[in-house]
């Protein structure tokens, strides 16, 4: 693992940039632990101060230090993205591998469930749920709900790959080696599926963080909680741009861009690395 990271860092510019960006965002999130201010409290600092040494990102019209507020916002948004990705990846891998390898009735049942999720309009449903549970909707619950919607496309992708792997001779070799289907799936097929899983993880994080921004800007999430989305919501509420408090809006937008770019670059760099073809070239094929 260390060697992989070192190689990527040494030979791939995208990976270097991604590391810097993501580290910056991560450090920001970690700093939330030592924040002098509670994000739930307002009017602890003077309002509408432009960026300065004392307040690097300035202060908001709600009397909060934007820098320290953002540490919580980033932490919560990342948490949401990671949980959503983890939940939906688990479902996608399980459904994709099972449907692909077992085939037959299992495949048909799983894929009809899959397709029902595909055709469900996610945004209206999320809006409805948020509206109904407004106030009680915790970040974890939101992440789980989004996770439940984030898997079907990727499950199909994994299934398609397993279907073609199943026809390859090495799967038959494993069968005639007396290997059971669970072990075939894990040993023979999972290594080929992992690049897809990784690619879709990053994709899924981007999707869920973006979705949360959408919900928040509409005012449908728990706006007392600091996230990238709620920051923008509050800034809009106080007409930050009209009032000239541009730093209040610039901070979340720039941090979101850095986070998204970092994730994207990490995705494309690592994806190329774990592509079986690259792995083959590396081991000298």
């Amino acid at each position: 693992m260390w060697k992989v990271t070192r190689d990527l860092f040494k030979y791939d510019g995208r990976f270097r940039i991604a590391t810097v960006f993501l580290l910056a965002v991560l450090i920001l999130a970690i700093l939330s632990a030592v924040s002098p201010y509670d994000p739930g409290k307002t009017f602890k600092v003077p309002q509408d101060l432009p960026p300065s040494w004392g307040h690097p990102f300035g202060t908001s019209s709600r009397g909060q230090d934007v820098f320290w507020w953002m540490t919580f916002a980033v932490r919560n948004s990342l948490f949401l993205g990671l949980v959503t990705a983890a939940v939906s990846r688990l479902i996608a891998i399980f459904v994709g591998l099972t449907a692909g390898y077992r085939g037959g009735l299992v495949d048909r049942v799983l894929m009809s469930i899959n397709d029902s999720f595909v055709v469900m309009p996610v945004l209206p449903i999320l809006i409805l749920l948020s509206f109904l549970l407004r106030g009680q909707l915790s970040l974890l619950m939101l992440a789980f709900i989004m996770g439940l919607f984030g898997w079907p496309w990727d499950a199909r992708l994994i299934r398609a790959q397993v279907l073609s792997l199943k026809e390859r001779a090495f799967t038959r070799t494993a069968v005639y080696s007396g290997t059971g289907s669970l072990k075939i799936t894990l040993d023979e097929h999972l290594p080929f599926v992992l690049p897809v899983v990784f690619a879709t993880t990053v994709n899924n994080m981007l999707w869920s963080i973006g979705m949360e921004v959408t919900l928040s800007v509409l005012g449908l999430s728990n706006v007392t909680l600091a996230t990238i989305g709620t920051t923008i919501f509050w800034a809009n509420q106080h007409q930050a741009l009209v009032a000239g408090v541009w730093w209040w809006l610039a901070a979340p937008v720039i941090i979101a861009i850095i986070l998204f770019l970092g994730l994207y670059l990490l995705f494309s760099s690592v994806n190329e690395y774990i592509d079986p073809r690259t792995r083959l070239r590396l081991i000298g094929g």
Partner: peptide
């Protein structure tokens, strides 16, 4: 094609010996 390009060939031999 008989062996997965991402696995060592000996793994198939050991698997066969143990499974049977």
């Amino acid at each position: 094609e008989t062996f997965s390009p991402l696995r060592r060939v000996e793994d198939y031999l050991y698997d066969t010996a143990i499974n049977f």
